[in-house]
């Protein structure tokens, strides 16, 4: 996985989608772009899941502290 942030990965995926919408794109290029776009979305999704897990741990810790 590259070191880009969640926002950067989503921006990459959006830019790829715009390129895919071009009329004159070859099938070969569109397949490469599609695969790159999916990779960006999957990696962004992993970052999101990790962030959710971190929030959950922080929430659980703060409940313990209050108790």
């Amino acid at each position: 996985m590259t070191n880009e942030s969640f926002e950067e990965k989503i921006a990459n995926a959006k830019s790829i989608m715009e390129k895919l919408m071009k009329q004159d794109i070859s099938l070969e290029d569109s397949v490469k772009l599609y695969e790159e776009g999916i990779k960006n979305i999957q990696e962004a999704s992993i970052i999101l899941e990790e962030a959710k897990a971190k929030i959950k741990i922080i929430e659980q810790n703060s409940i313990k502290d209050e108790a």
Binding site: L27, E28, V31, Y34, E35, I38
Partner: peptide, 9 residues
Amino acid sequence: ELASMPQSM
């Protein structure tokens, strides 16, 4: 051409 594309695409 479909054969060269990912199924999800």
